[in-house]
Design a protein around this nucleic acid. Structure first.
Lengths: 289, 289
DNA sequence: ACCTGAACACCGTTCAAGT
DNA sequence: ACCTGAACACCGTTCAAGT
């Protein structure tokens, strides 16, 4: 049974690119990258493949649009590209408007980001104002941590996102999602007092770390989920840690020594420690105040 | 024409897991991840799919084996797991021996790594000896740069590697390739004088950055290659840079300001600058000597 | 302008059968 | 023990045809 319309499909509101992207994100979240299929999509949207191809060029473009929508939503709480925040969805990029905000958010495991909101760059202080409900700390460091955690959480909620951002980062994504991330991270770098000649290098380094670490974490989480439906994150780390402890002592002395730290570590904490490490490197090479 | 045996296939030496992995790497290098097909594999090896499935469980395992082989080769010049370097290929891991060295190396663009070889950790100084033909510098920093460049080059030569390492990093890879990288990077971290309690965090941060940055770079290089068969890397950066310069000034002031640096930058140099940034952060938080 | 759905070429994987 | 190759279920994409 349940062959059709798991979703009570009114199917009044005509097909649109937005609806297709929304459905694609839902499928990706539910079943990973292999879950996004034109067959599954047509069933969920109650159409034929031709209808989808009328709105979307191919699967790659659809993946790109889904990626952009989720990243935009993740950075929306941030002061990134939101000088005109109240309006529904102004066309942010130059070419093909990128689907507005993200659907399928659903506030996952109840706790969500935490800090967020926070700092605008000092020299443009008038714009941000005191609108934050929470603490709204001020330092650029806090701003960077907030952006980093925003992406970290988005990738954890949408594990397929890591692969897209890291390695599918096609031409079109370079022109839509890369600027979003660069802008959010870079404003804080600028606020930190980094000299302009180092902006690109510092921002790139941070972005690479953030995507790398968040991606790895999401993969581990996904692996853990696959092993057993629940309980399992600790079990996964425990298994990996045990395997490391059994490596050849001559070939892998360091890895064996570090196996215990693998077992005990908290992903989120470790992630932020890495961010702070890079921030320490950046501030250490800052010109004298 | 040319339907069969593009490769003059003697086909005497029986099929083996090694030959299959070797052929898989060749296909991946030649045509990317989508180029690895059981059909293409059977043609190149002059067999049927059943023969391959007798040696290999499925495509995922084959990808994992290819990944492990290439990473092992990339780190082989390093002092990682090579206490017994002359011997052909001792079984390094505990389970399923990992294919020995990498085939398909072919010394790409004639120049290759550069530094490499270099330092063993000080407290085991006797083992390394003065065997290096080149400069063989000594500092742990140089060691880390060498490991980082080794992986950077491997990913550039095998662009499919990034995606495997970043997001396909399945259970089995955690137990074969992750320790290789951890060991190579971690020994230098230890030699740097980082306190043991921070080994895991520091090594992880570096590894995430290395994989993230190298992966991004490989993707860009691949995108550039797709646009035009040659010339193109500069053209690709130029196009992206121009697109960034045309972003909305209100929404993307930082990204616009940094577009010029995107155009001019050298991937390799930028990559090493990021490594040094993290090293600066690590040494900055070192306990007083 | 927008949608339908059969059809095409291709994919990973299986398996009865051979040697 | 190792290999063959037809067959199966599924995939992305196309396209003549409808409204």
């Amino acid at each position: 049974m349940a062959t059709r319309t798991r979703r009570s499909q009114r199917r009044t509101e005509a097909l649109s690119r937005e609806r297709i992207v929304e459905a694609a994100i839902e499928l990706l979240d539910a079943a990973g990258e292999s879950g996004l299929t034109f067959r599954a999509l047509t069933e969920r949207l109650a159409t034929g493949p031709g209808a989808i191809y009328w709105h979307v060029a191919n699967k790659g473009e659809l993946l790109g649009a889904a990626t952009d929508a989720v990243v935009a939503a993740a950075l929306a709480a941030e002061p990134a590209a939101s000088a005109k925040s109240p309006e529904p969805a102004g066309p942010a990029g130059p070419a093909e408007s990128p689907e507005a905000a993200g659907p399928a958010e659903s506030a996952g495991p109840a706790e969500a980001a935490g800090p967020a909101e926070s700092a605008e760059s000092p020299e443009a202080a008038g714009a941000a104002g005191a609108a934050g409900p929470a603490e709204s700390a001020g330092s650029p460091q806090d701003g960077i941590r907030a952006v980093a955690l925003g992406l970290f959480d988005a990738i954890e909620e949408h594990p397929w996102l890591a692969s897209q951002l890291m390695t599918q980062l096609s031409h079109s994504l370079w022109e839509t999602v890369a600027p979003r991330i660069f802008e959010s991270v870079g404003r804080q770098i600028r606020a930190l007092g980094v000299p302009e000649s180092s902006w690109f290098a510092a921002t790139s380094a941070l972005m690479h770390y953030i995507l790398g670490a968040a991606g790895q974490n999401a993969t581990n989480a996904a692996s853990a989920r696959t092993l057993g439906p629940e309980v399992d994150r600790a079990r996964f780390l425990d298994a990996a840690s045990t395997a490391w402890e059994q490596l050849d002592p001559d070939d892998y002395p360091f890895t064996r020594a570090v196996a215990g730290q693998l077992r005990g570590h908290d992903d989120r904490e470790q992630f932020l420690a890495g961010v702070d490490l890079i921030l320490a490197g950046i501030t250490a090479s800052l010109p004298a105040r």
